[in-house]
Amino acid sequence: MTKLKTVVAMAAASALFLAACGSGDSSGSGGSYKLSFVQGVTGDAFYITMGCAVQEEAKKEGATVDIQGPQKFDPTQQTPVLQSVVSSRPDAILIAPTDVSAMQRPIEQATKQNIKVVLVDTTLNDPSIAASAIASDNVGGGKAAFEAIKQLAPQGGKVLVVSVQPGISTTDARAKGFQDAVKADSKFTDLGVQYSQNEPQKAAQIVTAALQKDPDIVGIFAANLFSAEGSATGVRQANKQDQVKIVGFDAGPDQVKALQDGTVQALVAQQPGKIGQVGVQQAIKALKGEKTETKVQTGFTIVTKDNLDSPEGKAALYKSSC
């Protein structure tokens, strides 16, 4: 297999602005800040890794942090979790919104309670209500995923995107980055995006059906952890491992195993730890009335069998626990 280059793309923030003072002890002295981290979904290695970094950074800052999340990546489940967190009156909330539209009002309600909000990973239609928004360069990640498939299948052919559901800022951006890159290369044909609703079993069914309709598919871009897991299952069930190259987004234990087994050929690993660390830093700045960065983009690393055991490859992998 052609050795893929490790890509590390870092883009720093734009436009600084002076955040308003938070309630309570805005100087940070005389007591610790109370933070809450609302995950996109519990049990996901991406958010577990982020949560570990949030806890570590909060400890450095002398702050306490509570971590909660919904059982599914769903705004109808995340909203009551957020409302419960708001009722506990934290000084600041770090949250990964599960929908750009549906979570707008619930998060606005939190800011009206004089609680500082920092968006981590995902965002909103109007992120200006937050002190800061930290996320991966998801469009760039999608383009990098296509470059990986291009190197794995240089002859070209049909490619498919398996994503989560419409309306999620991160996965929508990844799909766009991938599809834009496909359209710019005449060797490849874009079969569009299909949605797994974050269910690995559904992703497997999507891939099985897609391979029945288009048995000559050469590549699949799985836009998140569960989509990659299910896509790998679908390809394996169709006995197409030698033909179909899968590039997954995220690098949890299941994805690493699939990479080691050869079912998935490359992973686009984000930096959830960095997102969590910067999220806490921006929240503390907002609470102290210091300038915050309205937008921070973090990079990613392409992980393959070739660099999996390298220091850089190991550092890119997600945690299943702290």
Rank of each mutant, 00 (worst) to 15 (best):
I93G: 03
V38I: 13
P90H: 02
K59I: 06
F37A: 07
S88F: 01
T49R: 05
G43A: 09
G51E: 01
L94F: 05
G40A: 15
S101R: 10
K59Q: 13
Q83H: 06
G51W: 01
V81W: 05
P70Q: 12
T42M: 14
K60C: 10
A102F: 02
V41L: 11
Q104E: 10
D91W: 09
F37H: 08
K60H: 11
I95H: 07
I93C: 03
A92N: 10
G40R: 07
F37T: 03
D99T: 01
P70E: 11
Q83Y: 03
T49M: 07
L94R: 04
P70A: 05
V38Y: 02
E61H: 14
V41F: 07
Q83R: 12
P70M: 07
G43C: 09
A58M: 09
I93W: 04
V38K: 02
D44T: 07
D99V: 00
V65Q: 06
Q78T: 05
V81H: 07
Q39E: 14
T79W: 01
E61R: 14
V54C: 03
D44G: 00
T49W: 03
F73W: 13
R105K: 11
D66N: 07
T42N: 11
I95Y: 12
D74K: 13
T64F: 01
T64G: 05
R89I: 13
V54S: 03
D66V: 08
V65H: 08
G69D: 04
C52W: 01
F37E: 04
Q39R: 12
Q39Y: 08
Q77C: 04
Q39M: 15
K59S: 08
Q68W: 00
A63M: 10
Q68M: 03
V85D: 07
P97E: 10
A63G: 04
K59M: 06
A92Y: 12
T64V: 01
D91H: 15
L82E: 10
T98M: 02
A45C: 11
I95G: 04
V38M: 07
D99F: 01
F46D: 04
T76F: 10
P80S: 11
S88L: 04
P97K: 11
D74E: 13
C52M: 06
Q39D: 01
Y47M: 08
Q83S: 10
V86E: 10
I67K: 02
S84Q: 10
V86G: 12
G51T: 03
R105Y: 00
G51H: 07
V65C: 05
R89H: 14
I93Y: 05
F37I: 01
Q68I: 03
G62V: 06
P75H: 13
V81A: 10
T64W: 02
Q39P: 01
Q71K: 12
F73G: 02
